[in-house]
Simulated scan of single mutants.
Amino acid sequence: MNKSHATVAVVQSVPILFDKQSAMDKIASKSREAAARGADLIVFPEVFLPGYPRGLSFGARVGSRTADGRRDWERYWASSIDIPGTETDLIGELAKELGVYLIIGVVERDKEFSRGTLYNSIVYVGPDGSVLGKHRKLVPTGSERLLWGQGDGSTLTVIDTPFGRVGGLICWENYMPLARTAMYAQGIDIYIAPTADARDTWQSTIRHIACEGRCYVVSCNQFATKASYPADLAGYEDIEEDADILSRGGSAIVGPLGDYVVEPLYNEEGVLLATLDLSLVTQSRFDFDVVGHYSRPDIFQLVVNDKKQDIVRRI
């Protein structure tokens, strides 16, 4: 049955970095809190499980790496997850118990080949407990490229729900015009934008995407302090002189004409909640439909390779 409204929750929080169980515990507690408030769909930040290692260098300089940095990265790898795997099974049980969609930023291990590569991913879990899809970040940003591999076009995922089509891109992927177009062309109604960017310019980005795509934009960031970092990390000294607040947040929900439904939340942990009227998505496309009547395929065309790219193909 199609629903004209959906209640969406955005969790602005962090677990203890590199601590998989801490992340799983927070996913459970924050999901229960949001579901008790009527949420149909709950969104967690970029790589919430097992955390975004802001400020850490992993001992990397151009031309060299340190043994301590490799050990920290191994610890990060060990706290990452397989999709599907034990953690997604547990998240599925939680989603089924609560009757909600859970959309969570995770660090995903490559489980097909060497198992030595990690991906910055979004996992989509349905209220029946199943993994409905995932998206791997296409281009990790800056120093992130040493931590995570590049996704391919096979995970430009959009899922069908009773209240519309849901999908998204991660952080600075949202600055890639062609990636956004590939998402719009799948009829996206609720656009998920988990991020680690707390700058004022990010707010301009999500409002532009909402206005351009004529969709709701659900942006989810972290509120992170140094207290969320294990003090026994070899690389802890990288952040010792930083301010206590490492990420001030800025999670927000924007409507399909670019206006805030929920204004940005800064400098505190919290759960943002809003009931979205999906009829406004249709109304907003009356005068502008970026991949419909406002496109010019006789002039501009986008080619998307949505095939999975494998280094080894067995025939």
Rank of each mutant, 00 (worst) to 15 (best):
N305L: 04
I188D: 01
S154Q: 03
R285L: 05
Y184D: 06
G129H: 11
A78S: 15
R71H: 13
D287Y: 03
G92I: 03
K3W: 02
W73T: 00
K20D: 00
P84H: 04
S279C: 12
V106I: 01
L90C: 02
V218A: 10
E108S: 09
L273G: 14
A196C: 12
T201K: 14
Y76S: 00
D310R: 07
K307G: 07
S154V: 00
G255P: 11
Y175E: 08
P194T: 03
A34F: 05
G99N: 11
V262H: 08
T205H: 13
Y260R: 10
T181V: 12
M176W: 13
S247D: 15
A227V: 10
S143N: 12
L273Q: 08
T225L: 14
L41Q: 05
G151F: 00
A210T: 08
D298R: 09
G250R: 09
E269A: 14
D238L: 07
R214P: 14
L280G: 05
L273P: 13
A243E: 11
G151P: 03
W148Y: 08
Y52V: 08
G69R: 01
V106N: 02
Y175V: 10
R65G: 10
A9S: 06
P162G: 12
L178N: 14
L273W: 03
D232K: 08
